[in-house]
Amino acid sequence: MALAESGNLAVGGVQYLWQEHNAFLDGLLGTVKLSLIAGILSTILGLIVAAMRVSPIPALRIAGTAWSGFFRNTPLTLVFLGTSVVLPIVGIRFAWADAIGLDTFFIFAVIALSTYTSCFVADAIRSGFNSVPVGQAEAARAVGMTFGQTLRLVVLPQALRTVLPPLASMYIAMIKNSAIAEFFNVGELTKFFDDSVRDHPEHLYAEFIAVALGYIVLTLLVSAAFNLAERKLAVTR
């Protein structure tokens, strides 16, 4: 009897998910969009911060260290509060976003997630820089390369292989961190979970498993991509 009942519930859960699959996919897409954009921005920002931290100009080094120190030591939820609540209060509301059909809350979330993640990207890249023998950079400077050329043409390409594994972990952490955006009005996977549990608590297990699988698929894709990249780099050496 109990077996039949739970069986019915499972069937009901699957039916419910099928019925709601559009909402689920919307949520998944929200998480993908948020992670992808924040991933790209945090990588660019992280590269800049890492370069600042090894720059010959003391002011840039201090600024880079301060940026990392500040955002790395602030809880992500606070960073989200800072962008989604404090920025509008001080008048930064991205009014132009509405006009082109962008959700301002999404923009705030992207800013929060990218600034926070950029510190970790910067540190991973910086440790990669340190893995390249000093003589490589000295030789580059000796032929007359500027600081930027030395990093771009000599140090970074050699640091890449060391940097990939920690970067992969970081992007995975970032995808999961993106769940916090739910509390700041961004439609994504965790918000789908929250909304559907509120409306249909009887399907809790089905909802939970679906959402967890959604995250697992995304993070496994990141792992696979990075494994592939690592192997590619290993071969060309």
Binding site: P133, Q136, R141, A142, V154
Partner: peptide
């Protein structure tokens, strides 16, 4: 002291190191 001027001057001064320092990649 630094910057483009130094880079240009370095480009006119060849250097050979004890440990070769060829670009490994």
């Amino acid at each position: 002291e630094e910057g483009k001027g130094l880079a240009r001057l370095r480009s006119e001064v060849g250097m050979v190191f004890q440990s070769f320092n060829l670009f490994a990649h």
